[in-house]
C-alpha cells in the first residue's frame, strides 16, 4: 500500500492510500465525532455526524468522512463553522429520539433541545450497529430492520434469538456493547433467552413471531 499526502485542518499528514478520511484523521489524533461507526464493521454512513469539508475554494464540498477514501493531495477541514453548525443541527434532531446524547458532544457543538421539534423518544437512533453486528459478523440474524422512512425501526426475531443468542459470547451480549445509546438493556444479563426469560430488545417494541408485524409498525410512536 502506497503512502499519500493529505492535509487535514492545515496539518500535513502521510496516510495509507485506501484509508477513509476518518481513519486517517484518527490515526493522526484528530477527533471527528461519529455515532454509527465501528472499526469491526463496514462503514455505513447513517449518522452523518462525521461530515467534513474537502477541496478548496469553489470546489469545496461536504462529504461523510467515514466513507470517503483519501487520495494524494486531498485537503480536508473537520471543524469549519459550517460543519460545526450542521453537527449542531444533527444533534438537535437526534435529541428528539435519544435524550441522553453525551453532554460533551452537545456542549462542543452547542446543541440544545429544540422547542419546535416533535419528540419521538425511542432511544434508538437507527445507527444499525446492533443489526449489522448480529447479521454481518455473527451471521445470527436475530435483529433486523422493518419499515422504511420515518417509521423504520429495529426489531428482534425471537426464534432466531432462542437459537443463536445462547451461542454468542458466554459472558455478555455483544450487540449491547455496540449500541451507542445503551437502549439494549443490560437487565438481560444472566436471564438470557435460553433461560426462557425476556429477550433483549431494541426499544420501543420487540417483534413476537405470533404478532403480525403490521401491528407493531402501527404501535410505533405510541409506546
Amino acid at each position: 500500500m502506497s503512502q499519500v499526502n493529505v492535509t487535514i485542518n492545515g496539518e500535513h499528514i502521510k496516510a495509507v492510500e485506501g484509508m477513509t478520511i476518518l481513519e486517517a484523521a484518527r490515526e493522526a489524533g484528530i477527533f471527528i465525532p461519529t455515532l454509527c461507526h465501528h472499526g469491526h464493521l463496514d462503514a455505513y454512513g447513517s449518522c452523518r455526524l462525521c461530515v467534513v469539508e474537502i477541496g478548496e475554494g469553489e470546489r469545496k464540498r461536504v462529504v461523510a468522512s467515514c466513507l470517503y477514501h483519501i487520495s494524494e493531495g486531498l485537503v480536508v477541514e473537520t471543524e469549519t463553522d459550517k460543519i460545526n453548525n450542521y453537527r449542531r443541527i444533527i444533534l438537535n434532531l437526534l435529541m428528539h429520539r435519544w435524550d441522553n446524547i453525551p453532554v460533551i458532544l452537545l456542549e462542543k457543538y452547542g446543541a440544545k433541545n429544540h422547542s419546535r421539534f416533535v419528540d419521538n423518544m425511542t432511544y434508538c437512533i437507527l445507527c444499525g450497529l446492533c443489526v449489522r453486528y448480529c447479521r454481518d459478523v455473527k451471521g445470527a440474524n436475530v435483529l433486523g430492520f422493518v419499515g422504511r422512512g420515518t417509521i423504520r425501526q429495529v426489531v428482534i426475531f425471537p426464534n432466531q434469538a432462542a437459537k443463536y443468542c445462547p451461542t454468542c459470547c458466554p459472558k455478555e451480549m455483544e450487540c449491547l456493547h455496540y449500541c451507542p445509546t445503551g437502549v439494549i438493556s443490560s437487565q438481560y444479563y444472566g436471564s438470557r433467552p435460553a433461560d426462557g426469560q425476556k429477550l433483549p430488545h431494541a426499544h420501543p417494541v420487540c417483534i413476537n413471531d405470533d404478532v403480525n408485524i403490521l401491528e407493531i409498525l402501527e404501535r410505533v410512536g405510541h409506546v
Binding site: V131, R135, N141, V142, L143, G144, F145, V146, G147, R148, V155, F157, N159, Q160, I207, I213, L217
Partner: peptide, 12 residues
C-alpha cells in the same frame, strides 16, 4: 434466506 431479511424487504 433469514426471516429478518424477508421482513426487511416486505416492509420496505
Amino acid at each position: 434466506l433469514p426471516m429478518n431479511h424477508l421482513y426487511n424487504v416486505t416492509t420496505f
